[in-house]
Simulated scan of single mutants.
Amino acid sequence: MRLLILLCTLAFAAPALAQAPKPIDPAALAQAKVFLEKSGSAAVSQQMVSGILAAQKASLERANPGKTAEINEVIGLMQAEFAKEIPAMIDAMAAVYAGHFTKDELAEVTAFYDSPVGRKMVKEMPQIVAETLTVAQTFGQKIAVEVLSKLKPEFEKRKLKTSKP
């Protein structure tokens, strides 16, 4: 009977134990936030938000021709809502770094961003991200077309359409 109780207890406790996050060192978390600030991650996050909003604006303009003023108002509201969430996203990102690196390791990485080349990297990173996204999109589209073309017989064999008629 004790064995049955023990097995039942382990059966119910095991998933909870497996899912329990490992504790984060508060000092590492604080250093991770310094790292994210010095590395320009907040600026890159803002750049992502700007890209999302630009895409949303274009979509709204296609769906609502002639309503530019109203769309701009809504985009402004969306931007304000995104801005409220960025600090929580930075905190979550810091927790990820703190889960992988110690306070001292993060301090070493952060020191790089205090160097001349580190400061240059932060300055150049938004443009580098924009350029690499363009490269990735171009290659992604090219590869997708080639893969779909190459695998067309497989789609046909399985009676699958690759797009709406």
Rank of each mutant, 00 (worst) to 15 (best):
S45T: 01
E61V: 13
Q56K: 12
E61F: 03
I71Y: 07
V44D: 05
E61S: 14
Q47I: 01
L53K: 03
Q46L: 10
E70F: 08
S50W: 01
Q56W: 02
T68M: 07
S59R: 14
Q56H: 05
M48G: 05
S50G: 15
N64R: 13
Q56F: 03
S45G: 07
A63Q: 14
R62T: 12
Q56M: 13
I71F: 11
V44Q: 08
T68Q: 15
Q47C: 02
A58I: 04
N64I: 07
E70Y: 06
N72A: 10
R62E: 11
N64L: 11
I71A: 07
A55S: 12
A43F: 00
Q56T: 14
N64D: 06
K67W: 05
S45F: 08
P65E: 05
R62F: 00
N64M: 13
N72P: 03
M48L: 13
E70K: 14
K67G: 06
V44F: 01
A63W: 00
N64C: 04
E70S: 14
A58P: 02
A54W: 01
Q46I: 03
I52S: 09
L53I: 08
S50F: 03
Q56N: 11
T68L: 09
L60N: 06
S59Y: 06
K57V: 07
A54T: 14
R62V: 10
E70W: 08
V49E: 04
G51T: 09
A58W: 01
G66Y: 04
Q46E: 15
E61N: 12
I71N: 04
E61D: 12
A63N: 08
M48Q: 11
P65S: 03
A43N: 11
K67C: 05
K67S: 12
A54K: 15
A69S: 10
V49C: 06
K57T: 10
A43P: 00
A43W: 00
A69N: 07
R62W: 00
S50P: 03
K67F: 07
S45L: 10
S50I: 02
N72V: 01
S59G: 11
G66K: 05
R62D: 09
V49Y: 00
G51R: 08
Q46D: 14
L53S: 02
A63G: 01
L60H: 07
I52Y: 09
A55I: 03
A43L: 09
N64E: 08
V44W: 00
K67E: 13
P65A: 05
A55Q: 14
T68H: 10
E61G: 03
A69P: 02
V49M: 13
L60S: 10
A55T: 12
I71C: 05
S45M: 12
S50Q: 15
L53R: 05
A54I: 04
A55K: 11
I52H: 04
E70G: 15
S59E: 14
K67N: 14
L53G: 03
G51N: 12
V44E: 05
P65W: 03
E70L: 13
G51V: 09
T68W: 01
A58C: 02
E70Q: 15
S59F: 06
P65V: 05
A69I: 06
M48F: 11
Q47F: 05
R62L: 09
